[in-house]
Design a protein around this nucleic acid. Structure first.
Length: 510
RNA sequence: GGCGGCAUAGCCAAGUGGUAAGGCAGCGGUCUGCAAAACCGUUAUCCCCCGGUUCGAAUCCGGGUGCCGCCUCCA
């Protein structure tokens, strides 16, 4: 497997620290508000990375933190006249709500800064003892001059960094780029006791501490968005390696930005869309599908048009899955618990179909092995859909028993492929057996809808039997205006909600 | 000023030396009472521009143009 490593700026062969095991630390949100779609892009991508490793049989230890103590949170709490930790916890829960909707699985460990103050203090002590940090009044700063490798991740040459170009330099620091490990509490701010007085951790030390605690030095993968490369991850490396004398993380993976009109979606620009707002207009599988349809390191532009485009593409996939499920049910093959390995004389079309399926499976793996190329992997899903559809439409009605059996094996295999691809990409919800569950619509809320539509369909069928095409078409067209699509098939009528959205969401999130 | 990214058909998008995946939209056909869905066929002589290396480049090198990002908190 090849992974692009920000540290070396090259695609490298992935070699785990321990065979068969992968340790991953991903920087989670600072919980002072709801997550937006740009955040979701990163979280969904790393969730997919984790799923893929598992699919490949690795034992994965996945850690994603919450930064629940930080200036932003304090400021926000001040504005809302709320306790900072209480406010942070509120948004932690909000994160889980949004993440679950997007099929982002919970990490094995979700450590919080507020729960790791003693460990953080211990690490700062070590840095002071080793002369990598110094005390100014009641603040503690990291002394970057003592860490020769400073800048190795972000490719920064210290001589050229225009310190203070955009932010006022704290003259008490030895070097403008020195950063706080511990900050003395100002009146009214939350604080913990420390050897240096009452205060709280600086921004970067918490991730270093928690990554070292749960994964240890030299763990496999550290990830986050592009915007964390500098200074956050640069500083994490400095702290960790200065303190331990060992390499911190092996592979550094950074996801590209989600943009709006080519500009980075960001809180400061105000051009962001909250996940929960988007999910009011688009089903979560559409959102996840869209975010995985571009390679993770490329910028991806968000727009309603692009999401609608994704929705129509997804529709094709869903149709194929439905056709397959219907076929399996029709042939009485819905029980897929045991796929047999009979020796049978192969029938040409079935054998070719099966061979194609096997090829697709390996293609999918090849795509993911190449630096997690989810866009390419997704195209294998479309190939799979086409192969399934083609086989289903071309399959002769009468078959001998051997080809029947082979057909069953092939179709079950196709179903399993949809299932395992989805296990990695996480687009569709699944049931306990891991089978894809296609809900008619994310916005289906009324239990009456289903029986009512079935009633209308029956009435229309009566009209069709009488060849009353005028009435039949009138019903179908009227339903379509309501966003409900009818499809007459040889085996009955199928209905579904129209997937794409017309009007554009106006305005950004708050 | 330093560092970095992106530019592929109407739209989205993969592709880092071997002669342009996939999706959406469009067009023609099959199927259908008509549709829809599905299937078949079709849609970039060319990958921002100029030059170079090579038998061969969207892919490598040099130069240029445009857009964006980081250097302050942001996934």
């Amino acid at each position: 497997m090849k992974i692009y490593n920000t540290l070396t700026k090259e695609k490298e062969e992935f070699k785990p620290r321990e065979p068969g095991k992968v340790s991953i630390y991903v920087c989670g949100p600072t919980t002072y508000n709801f997550i937006h779609l740009g955040n979701a892009r990163s979280f969904i991508f790393f969730d997919t990375v984790r799923r893929y490793f598992r699919y490949r049989g690795y034992e994965v230890r996945y850690v994603q933190n919450f930064t629940d103590m930080d200036d932003k949170i304090i400021n926000r709490a001040w504005e809302e006249k709320e306790n900072p930790l209480f406010l942070a916890e509120k948004y932690v829960q909000a994160y889980f709500y949004d993440a679950q909707a997007l099929n982002i699985q919970k990490a094995d460990i979700h450590p919080k800064v507020s729960q790791h103050i003693p460990e953080i203090i211990d690490l700062i002590k070590v840095l002071i003892e080793k002369k990598h940090a110094y005390l100014v009044d009641q603040d503690v700063y990291f002394d970057i001059a003592t860490f020769a490798d400073y800048g190795k991740l972000s490719g920064r040459n210290l001589d050229f960094i225009q310190a203070g170009a955009r932010v006022e330099v704290d003259v008490r620091k030895k070097n403008p780029l020195d950063f706080a490990l511990w900050k003395a509490a100002k009146p009214g701010e939350p604080f913990w006791e420390s050897p240096w007085g009452l205060g709280r951790p600086g921004w970067h030390i918490e991730c270093t501490t928690m990554a070292l605690k749960y994964l240890g030095s030299g763990f496999d993968i550290h990830g986050g968005g592009n915007d964390l490369i500098f200074p956050h991850h640069e500083n994490e490396i400095a702290q960790a390696e200065a303190a331990t004398g060992q390499p911190f993380a092996h592979y550094w993976i950074h996801s590209g930005y989600l943009t709006v009109n080519q500009e980075k979606m960001s809180k400061s620009l105000g051009n962001y869309f909250l996940v929960r707002e988007i999910l009011k207009k688009f089903p979560p599988e559409t959102v996840r599908f869209f975010l995985l349809s571009t390679h993770y390191r490329s910028p991806q532009d968000f727009s309603e048009e692009n999401l609608n485009n994704a929705a129509r593409g997804l529709e094709r996939l869903k149709t194929s899955i439905i056709l397959l499920q219907e076929a399996l049910a029709r042939f009485g093959w819905s029980d897929t618990s045991q796929s047999s390995n009979h020796k049978f004389q192969t029938t040409e079309s079935e054998a070719a179909f099966l061979a194609t399926l096997n090829k697709l499976e390996s293609d999918f793996v090849v795509a993911m092995e190449d630096d997690f190329n989810t866009a390419l992997a997704l195209s294998k899903l479309f190939d799979l859909a086409r192969e399934v559809n083609t086989y289903l439409t071309q399959r002769p009605e009468t078959k001998n028993q051997q080809s029947e059996e082979l057909a069953r094996v092939a179709l079950v295999k196709a179903k399993e492929l949809f299932g395992s691809f989805n296990e990695v990409l996480g687009i569709f919800k699944t049931d306990v057996r891991g089978d894809i569950v296609l809900e008619r619509s994310f916005q289906e809320k009324d239990a009456l809808v289903e029986p009512l539509i079935n009633l209308i369909i029956r009435l229309r069928q009566e009209a069709r039997v009488k060849k009353d095409w005028v009435s039949a078409d009138k019903i179908r067209n009227s339903l379509k205006e309501l966003g409900i699509v009818l499809e007459d098939t040889p085996t009955g009528v199928r209905w579904k909600y129209k997937e794409d959205n017309g009007p554009v969401i106006s305005g950004a999130g708050s």
